[in-house]
């Protein structure tokens, strides 16, 4: 009773809920200040033990013995010269059938707090086990993998040198994760420009940056935030017809909240030039076709992210955005 009375008393104050208190459209983005992009993902400084673990992880990453029939390693799909992706729209599984989602690149994972296109794990160590044990991928039982690796003298010695408990499934996962954390983008035209070298980006690339951060134009920063060019968030870009039976609902399968139907993780954009095709379904072959997609405003409108709107940009501006994205490519990329 008291609470009802109290509710009545504060009703007017609460009633303002939902009223738009600020006009946003004309506000410049705080991300337009290039200094906010300065704090970037860098290679971790490793002590000798950590370096040994990362080296062990590298061996494991490239070792096909991590798959049930010794035919597939992590590097089968995550190839160094393709931004640690595979260049396929979506990869073939071990039975020659297409997997529904594209192989994500592995650069700058330190900027990520959720993994897989649907963010089903929030730990890189946990993530490592998923493709190893997936029946359609490496199809390896972790207990059998431990037995197999313990029979390899070089692994036995390498594991016991860095882990008190030697070869365990968790240590395999940890070592691979530590190796993956060393995969970071190097210096690029953009990072040089952010550091103060005015000549590092040309006028077209600078225009691209302006468009990228302009809420009225590219508005890419609605989702691609500094420093990793990702908000670690989930957005429906209209790629999926969420009304269709058996549609890939992405994040919604993990968190059944309406806005997440057909939503997938925002990828980082450093070295994005290397990881074509694009989107979770690999449906855009080039960065130009990604821009065309955004200009069109998506394939399906049902449940589309509120941050996603058709881009009102000219062909010249489209090319500037693409030029900017290519300015994010590391000079040592693929080496």
């Amino acid at each position: 009773m008291c609470i009802n009375n109290a509710s009545a008393i504060i009703f007017l104050a609460v009633y303002v809920s939902g009223i738009n208190l600020e006009v946003l459209a004309s506000e410049p983005s705080e991300f337009a200040d290039r200094s906010v992009w300065r704090s970037s993902v860098t290679a971790p400084e490793l002590n000798p033990r950590e370096a040994a673990i990362a080296e062990l992880g590298k061996q494991l990453f490239f070792d096909p013995r991590l798959s049930i029939d010794n035919t597939m390693s992590c590097a089968t799909c995550h190839q160094p010269d393709k931004g640690w992706s595979d260049g396929e729209a979506t990869p073939l599984d071990r039975y020659g059938k297409r997997i529904e989602r594209a192989t994500p690149g592995l650069l700058n994972l330190q900027a990520h707090t959720v993994f897989m296109w649907d963010g089903r794990v929030d730990s890189l160590v946990d993530q490592v086990a998923l493709p190893i044990t997936s029946p359609r991928e490496m199809n390896m039982d972790l207990d059998k993998l431990v037995v197999r690796l313990r029979s390899v003298p070089s692994y036995q010695s390498a594991f016991s040198g860095v882990y008190p408990d030697g070869v365990t499934a968790r240590n395999v996962q940890h070592a691979i994760a530590e190796f993956e954390k060393t995969l970071v983008s190097g210096d690029s035209d953009f990072s040089d420009w952010v550091a103060g070298n005015e000549q590092a980006m040309n006028d077209q690339q600078k225009l691209g940056f302006e468009l990228f951060t302009d809420p009225q134009k590219g508005n890419c920063v609605a989702c691609h935030h500094p420093p990793g060019f990702t908000d670690n968030g989930f957005h429906n870009l209209g790629l999926v017809n969420v009304q269709q039976d058996n549609a890939d609902l992405g994040r919604y399968n993990i968190r059944p909240v309406a806005v997440l139907k057909g939503a997938f993780r925002t990828p980082g954009l450093k070295d994005i030039e290397l990881t074509a095709p694009y989107f979770h379904d690999g449906s855009a072959d080039t960065l130009e076709s990604v821009m065309d997609y955004y200009i069109e405003g998506g394939r399906h409108q049902s449940g589309v992210s509120p941050d996603f709107k058709p881009l009102d940009i000219t062909q010249q501006e489209k090319q500037a955005l693409v030029a900017f994205l290519k300015a994010l490519t590391s000079r040592d990329a693929g080496r």
Partner: peptide
Amino acid sequence: LSENQSFDLGSYPKGNQR
């Protein structure tokens, strides 16, 4: 999605409240 009370107040832009 808590057991004792679940709700989805939707999505809203800057300056808005739920």
